[in-house]
Write a protein that binds this DNA or RNA. Structure first.
Lengths: 318, 318
DNA sequence: ACCACTAATACTCAATCTGAGCATTAGTGT
DNA sequence: ACACTAATGCTCAGATTGAGTATTAGTGGT
C-alpha cells in the first residue's frame, strides 16, 4: 500500500473584506493565472488547518485574519487544472484542497493597496441583482442557458437556480448557478477543463464569456464561499465581522446588500435590526452624507454570543 | 519538499437512519473499539470523495446511501487516536479525515439487523431533552461543568451552550456542548487523548462517564453531524430523506422530535407543515394507533426543489 | 437668517405568522 | 352502545412583516 501516489493537501482561502464600496476578495498569482491565495499544508509544521491558513495568508499578504471558517474540501479529480506555480506536485499526485473562508473585516485604502483585491462580482457579474450591469449579464446568459436546457430536468434546474417562471431568486444559490453555467459550457473553465485531457491546445474559443475565470477550480471555491456567506448572514451575525467597529445602519445595510446582491427595504431593515438587539447605538453621530446625520452603532454583546441569530433580509419591491 | 511524511486521507461516514423509534447511526469495529464506518481514500481508484464514501459504505455494510453531504474535514493533530485496525498508517503519517453525513432513509427490521446500528443518544445522552434519562444525564454533568467553569469566559460558554441562566437550549449546538465536556475532561476521550502522549498507560479513571466513547475523534465527528442535521432540518427539507415514503404527520413529528431531542407542539407543527406545501396527502389512511385514523402523507414535488425550506419547530411548553 | 435638498428616523395599517389552548371526530376494543 | 385514544379542527391574542407616508436634522448656498 505504500506505492500509492502521494496526496497533497492544499489550502485555499477566500479572504473577504468590505472596502467602502463592496465585498472584495484577496487574490494572488500572475496576470492571466489569477487565483485565490493558496498554500500547501505541511503535515509536520502545522498542527491544525486553521492555524496553517492564518499562517500562510498572513505571510503571503500581511493580513491578520479575523473570523475563519472551513468551507469545503474539494477533491474531485479533473476539476482542478494543475497549478503551474506550485512546482511541487508531480502528475501522479492528487491534490485535495481544503477551502476556508476568512473575513478580514473592514479595510482602509492603505491595506487595500497592499494586497490584490478584487470586487467579487468581476467573477460573477450575474450575481449582482442591484446593478444594471448584473441584470444585463444574466440577460446575456439566459438565451444560451435555455438553449442548453433541452431536458425537463435541466429546465427545472435552470428555473430554480435563476428564479425563472415565478420562482424567486435565492441569493445564496451561487454555486448552483455556477455549476449550471459550467455544465452548459458558458464559463471559461468548462472549456479549459475539457481541453485539458488532450495533448493539443484547443483553438481559442470564439465565445466571449461573461465573468472572468480563475485558476484551477478557484472560481468554484469562490462561488461556494459566496453562497455560504450569503446564507449565513441570515442565521448568524457574521456581517459584523465585515463591518467596521462603528457604523451607521445605512452603511450596514449597504454592506448586506452588496454581499447579497439585492436591494433591501430600508425602514424594515432597520426595524428588524433594532429589534434583534444585535446592535446598540453609541452616542456618536455621523454627518458626512449630506442628509440628516446618522446614529453610529456598534455590535452588541448579544451578537457575540454563540446562539445569536443573523439578520432578516426584507427585500425591497421591484 | 518530497521528504514530507505522507498524508493519508480517511473518509468517515455518519450514516443516519430512522428506525421506528429513533435516529440510529451505523457503526463498525470490534467491541471496545467501536467507531464510525471508516475507509481510506484511494487517490487512484476514486474520482470523487462522495463516490468513495458511497462505495465503501456499501461494501462494508451492504447499504446503498441516499442523500450524502460533506460534513467537515478534520485535520487537527492530536485529536485522533491511532486507528488500530487500519494497519496502513505509520507513526509518521498524518491522517486527515473527511467526514460525510449520509441519510439511509427509513430502514426495516431486516436491514436493521444486518448492520450495527445504535441509537445516537447512547453517545450523547444529554442531547435528548425529552426523556427522563436525558435530563438526568445533564443533571449529572452540570455540577462538574460548573466546577470547571472557573473563569467568566468559561461560565458564559457553558451557560450559552447548555441553556443555563435564561438562555435557551439550542438543539443544534451539539458540538459546542461536546467540546466543553471534552475540555472539562468529562468525556472519556479527553482522558484517553491526554494519556496518549505518555509511554505509561494512565491508571483507569475512577470517574464514571456519562455517554459512551468512540474510537479516535469519531464522537466529535458524530457531534458535528448531529448538529448539522438538526440545524439543517430548519432550512432544508431533509427530514424526508429519513422518513418513509408515506407517513402520518405524527410519525413525521416523532422523527423530528427524536432527531432534535425536543418536544414539539402538535397542532402548530401540523399547521406550519401543511402550509409549507412540503407534504401532500395521499388518499390513504393509517389506522394502527388505536385512535382516530391518520391521513398518510408524502413529500410533495415542492420539497424536492432546490430552494425549498425546512420545517419550523414550534416547541412545546414545559 | 432663510430656503432647498438629502438622508435618517418615526409612525401607521393591514396581512401574516405564532404560541396556546379548547373542541370535535373516527376508529378500536369490550 | 360506550369508553378510550389519537388525529384533526378552530379560535384568539400577541408578535412579525410588507409597504408606505410623514417628520426631522444636518449641509450648502443666497
Amino acid at each position: 500500500m505504500s506505492a500509492t501516489p502521494r496526496v497533497i493537501i492544499g489550502l485555499s482561502a477566500v479572504v473577504v473584506a468590505a472596502s467602502g464600496k463592496g465585498p472584495e476578495v484577496l487574490l494572488s498569482g500572475a496576470p492571466g493565472a489569477i487565483g485565490l491565495p493558496f498554500g500547501s499544508f505541511d503535515p509536520i509544521g502545522h498542527r491544525t488547518f486553521e492555524l496553517a491558513v492564518r499562517d500562510f495568508v498572513t505571510s503571503q499578504t500581511g493580513f491578520a485574519l479575523g473570523y475563519v471558517e472551513q468551507l469545503y474540501t474539494f477533491g474531485d479529480k479533473g476539476r482542478e487544472a494543475p497549478l503551474a506555480d506550485m512546482g511541487q506536485s508531480s502528475d501522479a499526485d492528487r491534490v485535495v484542497s481544503v477551502g476556508y473562508i476568512a473575513l478580514a473585516g473592514s479595510i482602509d485604502e492603505g491595506q487595500r493597496r497592499a494586497g490584490v483585491w478584487a470586487d467579487w462580482y468581476r467573477f460573477f457579474p450575474w450575481e449582482d441583482r442591484r446593478s444594471e450591469a448584473g441584470i444585463r449579464a444574466l440577460d446575456l446568459l439566459l438565451p444560451d442557458l435555455k438553449a442548453w436546457a433541452t431536458t425537463t430536468e435541466r429546465q427545472s434546474r435552470v428555473a430554480m437556480a435563476f428564479g425563472l417562471h415565478g420562482q424567486s431568486w435565492q441569493e445564496s444559490q451561487v454555486l448552483d448557478r455556477f455549476e449550471l453555467l459550467y455544465e452548459a459550457g458558458l464559463v471559461q473553465e468548462a472549456q479549459r477543463d475539457r481541453a485539458k485531457g488532450q495533448t493539443q491546445a484547443m483553438p481559442p474559443a470564439e465565445r466571449t464569456y461573461v465573468g472572468e475565470p480563475l485558476v484551477s477550480d478557484h472560481r468554484r471555491i469562490l462561488a461556494t464561499a459566496m453562497g455560504r456567506l450569503r446564507a449565513k448572514i441570515r442565521y448568524r451575525p457574521i456581517v459584523f465581522d465585515l463591518a467596521p467597529a462603528r457604523f451607521t445602519l445605512s452603511e450596514l445595510q449597504d454592506l448586506v446588500e452588496v454581499l447579497c446582491g439585492v436591494k433591501l427595504h430600508k425602514q424594515n431593515f432597520r426595524r428588524t435590526l433594532e429589534r434583534s438587539g444585535l446592535v446598540e447605538s453609541t452616542g456618536a453621530m455621523h454627518a458626512e452624507t449630506g442628509g440628516r446625520p446618522a446614529m453610529l452603532f456598534t455590535r452588541s454583546a448579544v451578537s457575540r454570543q454563540a446562539g445569536a441569530t443573523g439578520l432578516s433580509l426584507p427585500l425591497a419591491k421591484r
